[in-house]
């Protein structure tokens, strides 16, 4: 086994010596700017591991991490699995279809049974907002929220921030527009919290039917004009529109949605020259984003996916640090 460890380069005064205050990552809510910077700085070191021929360090050797996915997920689950393996954790992934949940077991009982096998961390994806909070109150393991209902998806926001920082060198002062189904998006909520904390200038854009009630208290600008949102933007982040939204009368048709809110090359011209276009995936080409934009020179969508592994490694490593993981410095 390759035992070379990454070197954490302290890009901020808190890095290296830093710690996260909570032993769980339930959301971006509760993280301060220094903690976010610490995760992003740590992720830089983690990213380097992914460039090595042997992509593995022993930081989480002997730790057991359970990936508990109550909702289908390919990207997030595999990203966590790879991150865990690169840190040498013992991992186990459980999806609802193969668990007792389909037999009517409650979340609490599922978790208690898992806990009887002493996992150190549980990475959970769940369709109910607040499910990780419930888990963190009843269990002993550290909980990482891999997406809960319409609430938060903190590691997605962290990998988005990491990607933005790689391109722009900073987050503060950037004009970042988030366009799409704002109402149902956990990615949106985590991003708003993170970007506000880091001093970015956030603009939300979507149809009035998909605007979260009380958005005026989110501390962001909100508009239903995509031209206004894209105008002068440093970053344009597109959110997925789900087919089901038509049945709730949120939008008349995907066709009309694309006409009003789809990101086309023409619309993107209003943005800054060095704009980057992001999407948390999975994309609906021709619904929220034109293929020409998704695959074009401004798109960093696949970089987001790569960075996801590094960011998740950082989160796992820092949370494990609460129980004194092996030092990651050489």
């Amino acid at each position: 086994m390759n035992v070379d460890a990454p070197v954490v380069t302290p890009a901020s005064p808190t890095a290296g010596a830093g710690r996260l205050k909570s032993r769980h990552l339930l959301g971006i809510a509760g993280l301060d700017a220094a903690e976010i910077a610490l995760i992003l700085d740590t992720a830089e070191a983690m990213k380097e591991i992914g460039t090595r021929p042997i992509k593995k360090v022993p930081a989480l050797r002997g730790r057991t991490v359970v990936n508990l996915f109550f909702e289908p997920s390919t990207r997030t689950r595999t990203s966590f699995e790879i991150a865990e393996k690169r840190l040498s954790a013992d991992t186990l992934s459980i999806a609802t279809a193969t668990s007792s949940v389909s037999k009517g077991e409650t979340l609490i009982d599922t978790v208690r049974n898992l806990e009887a096998m002493s996992p150190d961390m549980i990475v959970m994806r769940h369709s109910s907002s607040g499910a990780p909070h419930l888990l963190s109150r009843v269990g002993r393991a550290a909980v990482i929220n891999a997406g809960d209902g319409m609430h938060e998806h903190p590691t997605q926001a962290l990998l988005d921030a990491f990607t933005i920082r790689e391109h722009k060198g900073r987050l503060a002062g950037l004009r970042i527009s988030i366009v799409g189904d704002l109402l149902h998006s956990r990615v949106l909520r985590s991003n708003v919290l993170l970007l506000n904390t880091m001093g970015a200038d956030v603009c939300l854009c979507g149809p009035s039917t998909l605007m979260p009630p009380g958005v005026d208290r989110f501390g962001v600008k909100a508009t239903s004009s995509i031209d206004e949102a894209v105008d002068g933007a440093d970053v344009v982040m597109m959110l997925r529109i789900q087919q089901e939204r038509m049945s709730g009368h949120f939008i008349p048709s995907l066709r009309e949605y694309f006409a009003l809110f789809g990101l086309t090359p023409e619309r993107l011209r209003r943005a800054r020259e060095d704009v980057i276009v992001m999407h948390p995936g999975p994309m609906n080409r021709g619904v929220e984003i034109d293929s020409e934009v998704a695959d074009g020179p401004y798109s960093v969508i696949l970089e987001q996916v790569s960075n996801g592994v590094a960011v998740r490694m950082a989160v796992l490593y820092l949370l494990a640090g609460h129980d004194s993981a092996e030092p990651i410095k050489a």
């Binding site: 607040g130 979260p212 009630p213 009380g214 958005v215 709730g248």
Partner: peptide, 20 residues
């Protein structure tokens, strides 16, 4: 509909479906 909390800022922030 399938709302579980009062529709407003707090339900939005917590990702809970609202009942106006």
């Amino acid at each position: 509909a399938d709302g579980v909390a009062h529709e407003g800022y707090h339900a939005s922030a917590l990702g809970l479906r609202g009942i106006p």
